[in-house]
Nucleic acid binder design. Structure first.
Lengths: 331, 331
DNA sequence: CATACTTCTGTGAACGTGCACAGTAGCGCG
DNA sequence: CGCGCTACTGTGCACGTTCACAGAAGTATG
């Protein structure tokens, strides 16, 4: 009933441990005869390598930690993360690397994560954080090879990342609104300590220049409620606005509610542009014209960076991927 | 630069490995003096136990695998899973157990998972599957202690689970619709090979009895599109229906679209009841009256079951938790 | 034929723990 | 004083693997 070891396989195949080990690790120098015998023995015994024993000698664990540094709540709601998790599991599994999940929402969690990494329990880290000045970033980067999906503000040169071109996306949407003849275009941004918050506003300003007055800009926090609140605020400040670019679909859904409450028709009176092309974009009324982020490609690119790092790459360059305008009915 | 070992700590504290090991594992019989010296030595050296070495001798890994057995796509969309993942990480971390994620969508993945478990690489399994007759269930249960969040159809006695009382929830909603004076109540179910598909229909039939005719029942697949399609179909079959109970909020959102297209007002002409109380429930127009599942409690209960199993419990009893009616505007 | 080189194989030593066991010191008790 | 008991400590071994090394067998080269 005991689990078979490499000894058992060696015995069954009539060779020594060393030879079996060489086959397992893809070394050259295993004769065809030995190879066949070992493979049969493995199949017969149902042998599976003991990773603990292997780790002990190789000093590698064959696992990567995904560190989620966010206030618990809003995490995961974002389809962004779902895609990343899925892609990460799949791609890493191909290399026989397992993904272990860690939360780093509070002080205690952070310590645990750092200890875990310092203890060498993971070969690399997939950092998921959006907030600027996250105290975790430096500690993590010091403890293990780390990458991030989305830039870590202020640590762009420390932690390689793959991200969507937020600024480009914001320009695409703003240009589209302008091209549809809108004259008074407002914006609801994300939190200004996140890349999406900062860069989407930059793109907006790129296009509108002087016309992007303070009066036409409100700041949300990615939640639907904040979108509604910000929209109401904007309508008070600038009742004559005829379009609004909202930095996320979820906030845009909130904005739609506020516009409806104010009796404005969308898109007739006010055109609404979202961002993300998340699932809410199709369930709002009217469906949102928005900016699609290449989530899957971003996730793939992030994993590529991580694998490169594990293979010994020094400083892989960040990857920035283009966004795409998706036209529906809200603008 | 080498990572400190238990030897280094022992040397620094002036005791032997054994004593340090005892302290680490919470054994009795460590003198206060030794305890203090060791704790200081650990802090000074920054020692972290080597889990690989520990695993090798204890035959335990200190990790649990979350096995996701679903066609990739729809997975994670469900906030259900988000909550489960979050709770699992947090609760397991308290016991210093790490969560490793595995996908088992296709044949190859399944094999990998089974091999992984057979190899003893995880102490337990958190199985996430909804489809009846999942070939994975038995293999997993045979390879490691396993629990499931939501019943595994046909394996209720093999794999302990925690779930919401779907049947109760369906009764609550149906009774509510009846109490509001609705006479011709239709239903859009989930796939009939999932617990939610089966039991929510049962609850519906519990209340309506004979009135739950085949003509008033359509089957969806949890997607928004299927909700829309099913609603259109029902309107053709029974144009006089005045209420519809939809087995998930997402499908209900689709149903709303179909009703709008058909010119029916909600809730005036047709009352709509959803299920899940997911995030879409508040972003539809009108917001959905729905059934809240106690997601967090379900997740907690699932982890409790798993921990009990890890502690040697034989056959913990399934846990079924009550649902709650949430009244908004659609009914 | 000696030598060098290539291909392949077996062996001992380490990796860092936990655990069983043996052993020590102190103390109360008859 | 001898004995047993409690509280504590140190030591050798095993866990299953990889890796460096030594060496064997076969083949080409001088």
């Amino acid at each position: 009933m005991k689990r078979p070891t490499i000894h058992d396989v060696a015995a069954a195949a009539g060779v020594s441990r060393g030879t079996v080990s060489r086959l397992l690790n893809g070394d050259r120098y295993v004769s065809p005869a030995a190879r066949a015998a070992i493979e049969r023995a493995i199949a017969e015994t149902g042998y599976v390598v003991n990773r603990a024993a292997r780790s002990l000698v190789t000093q590698r664990t064959g696992s990567v930690a995904m560190v989620l540094s966010e206030p618990d709540q809003m995490l995961f709601e974002d389809p962004n993360y779902s895609t990343l998790i899925r892609v990460a599991i799949r791609r890493l599994a191909e290399r026989d690397i397992s993904l272990v999940m860690m939360l780093a929402g509070n002080e205690g969690d952070r310590d645990r994560v750092i200890r875990y990494l310092r203890g060498g329990h993971a070969d690399g880290v997939l950092l998921v954080t959006t907030h600027a000045g996250d105290p975790l970033a430096d500690a993590v980067a010091a403890a293990a090879p780390a990458v991030s999906c989305g830039a870590v503000i202020g640590r762009e040169n420390v932690i390689p990342y793959a991200a969507a071109d937020d600024r480009l996306g914001a320009r695409q949407m703003t240009e589209y609104l302008v091209s549809r003849g809108r004259k008074r275009i407002a914006m609801i941004t994300g939190p200004m300590d996140t890349p999406g918050g900062i860069q989407r506003l930059e793109g907006f300003a790129d296009v509108l220049g002087r016309k992007a007055s303070r009066k036409l800009i409100a700041h949300g926090d990615w939640t639907q409620a904040s979108g509604e609140r910000s929209m109401t605020e904007l309508l008070e400040r600038a009742p004559d606005l005829d379009a609004v670019f909202v930095a996320s679909d979820l906030m845009a859904a909130g904005a739609l509610t506020a516009l409806r409450a104010a009796g404005r028709r969308v898109p007739d009176d006010v055109a609404v542009g979202g961002f993300d092309d998340s699932s809410v974009a199709t369930s709002t009324l009217p469906p949102l014209t928005t900016i699609r982020q290449p989530l899957a490609e971003m996730a793939e690119a992030t994993i590529d960076l991580l694998l490169a790092l594990l293979d010994g790459a020094e400083k892989p360059a960040p990857v920035v991927l283009p966004t795409e305008l998706v036209i529906r009915e809200s603008a």
